[in-house]
Simulated scan of single mutants.
Amino acid sequence: MSETGNAADDEPSAGESSAAEPPVVVKIGGAKAVDPAGAVGDVADLVDDGRDVVVVHGGSTVVDETIERLGMEPEYVESASGVTGRFTDADAMEAFTMAMAGKLNTELTALFREAGVDAVGLSGVDGGLLSGPRKSAVRVVEDGKRKIRRGEHSGTIESVNADLLSGLLADGYTPVVSPPMEGKESDGGVTPVNADADRAAAAVAGALDADLVLLTDVTGVYADPEDPGTLIESAATPDELAALEGAAEGFMGKKVMAAKEALSGGSGRVVVADANSEDPILAALGGAGTTIERSALEADDDGDDAEDTEAVDA
């Protein structure tokens, strides 16, 4: 990442991180149970301390509400590999863009600015920030049978415009990023498409060699998904990561998948933590939640299993 300021200065200038302090990418979950207030305060504190921060947010609940207000029903499908995600046809994509880039990104950016953070709201389409091929069809399982559903508007992120983010950070801004991403058509066209927000945060964290904090509405990954008392505090070896993957069910499975992608891409560590705890980001960076270290990856792990998600959601 680029840095600014005089090398003789004792303190880092705005947008400049100490060599001992990598950037932080924070993903704020989109569930209704997630209160962003604590994260907003922590980001303000980190930025005041000279730490580079990029925020990525989801918004599945508000997307569903927007779809329903438009007289439609949210549709979720199961992929051939057993992952459940949103099916985003053209009408759903319109609602998705309205909710994510229009409503949520603007409102969250306003919260950060109110807290004194010089935040800049961006969608993944802006400047080709998040880019990859569009998936116009997905393989799904319906009534036990594998089918192909066409008309999908989703994509897998293959590139991140890290220069755009680095330039904003160097100028003292805090990017607030949301899907949609830039979906590249086979004919060279560009279509805004849905992208999973956890995986978007992972892609950004990998591109910036940043620590990644995935904030959600539970305290981390549980060995018994029904028992918060079985929190898995860390995974630092391949065996520990395998156990973590085995325990992660439902939405948590996506977060562990995103964690592996981030680590494979260059992130030093990923923490899954409670958005509603006191000082949630600072607590996560200090050891709260479930921390997954880069050492947990196998030496030859290149993240190829990331394509497990054929249907995506924010």
Rank of each mutant, 00 (worst) to 15 (best):
203 A>T: 01
201 A>T: 02
180 P>D: 13
205 A>S: 08
184 K>T: 09
197 A>S: 10
201 A>V: 07
200 A>N: 06
189 G>C: 10
194 N>A: 14
194 N>H: 08
186 S>Q: 01
205 A>C: 09
186 S>E: 09
202 A>P: 03
171 D>P: 00
172 G>Q: 03
201 A>F: 13
182 E>Y: 03
202 A>G: 06
183 G>Q: 02
182 E>F: 04
199 R>D: 13
196 D>I: 03
171 D>S: 11
183 G>A: 10
177 V>H: 04
187 D>W: 05
179 P>Y: 13
205 A>R: 00
188 G>R: 01
198 D>N: 08
176 V>L: 13
180 P>G: 15
180 P>E: 07
199 R>E: 14
201 A>W: 09
197 A>L: 07
184 K>Y: 06
201 A>M: 10
190 V>Y: 06
191 T>W: 09
176 V>A: 14
205 A>K: 00
197 A>C: 06
183 G>H: 02
196 D>M: 06
196 D>E: 05
201 A>I: 04
190 V>S: 12
201 A>H: 04
196 D>A: 11
179 P>G: 15
185 E>M: 09
171 D>W: 06
199 R>W: 11
189 G>K: 01
173 Y>L: 12
202 A>I: 05
195 A>E: 03
184 K>G: 02
187 D>I: 05
190 V>G: 03
180 P>W: 11
174 T>V: 15
204 V>P: 01
182 E>M: 10
187 D>K: 00
172 G>L: 12
176 V>R: 01
196 D>L: 09
185 E>A: 12
204 V>C: 13
188 G>N: 04
